[in-house]
Design a protein around this nucleic acid. Sequence first.
DNA 1: GCCAACGTTGGC
DNA 2: GCCAACGTTGGC
Length: 154
Amino acid sequence: MNYWLMKSEPDCYSIDDLAAKSPAMWEGCRNYTVRNYFRDTMQLGDMAFFYHSNSDPCGIVGTMEIVSAAYPDPTQFDPSSTYFDAKSPIEAPRWVLRDVSFREKFSRVISLAELRTIAGLEDMHVLRKGQRLSVMPVTEAEWTIVNSLSGLRD
DNA sequence: GCCAACGTTGGC
DNA sequence: GCCAACGTTGGC
């Protein structure tokens, strides 16, 4: 079993959107490292943090579960989609996705600034300077620490 | 809105 | 296959 952190801009797609319609396709990832995570590394039943990027504040807002195998992202074939990729042949799709299912919304945002202050999270991928992956691995220890922070659950 | 970081593209 | 130019991400 693996743990993940997955980013979305809440103006585009927030944890409330997922809570309102779950499971849902985690669509639109157009990065080969992320594609390989989706295709090769993720497993059914893996858990992920939902992270709000480009928001105030940025941070972890809840959890979800990976509930499908990898399959082609339909938006790559849809000319009306912002994620359309004309170079992706339908018989050999470039981009895959996973279905995710809402699990929990925390009662507060664990901001990036707070994450930086917590012992045991020093090596967390999301805290590294310059990292830009929208999906990144989280260790079991990091998962446990974040989930045990005070005030996450009423 | 700025800019650092870094992935991608394309000419050679 | 190198690498410069360009585009994107995302925190601030």
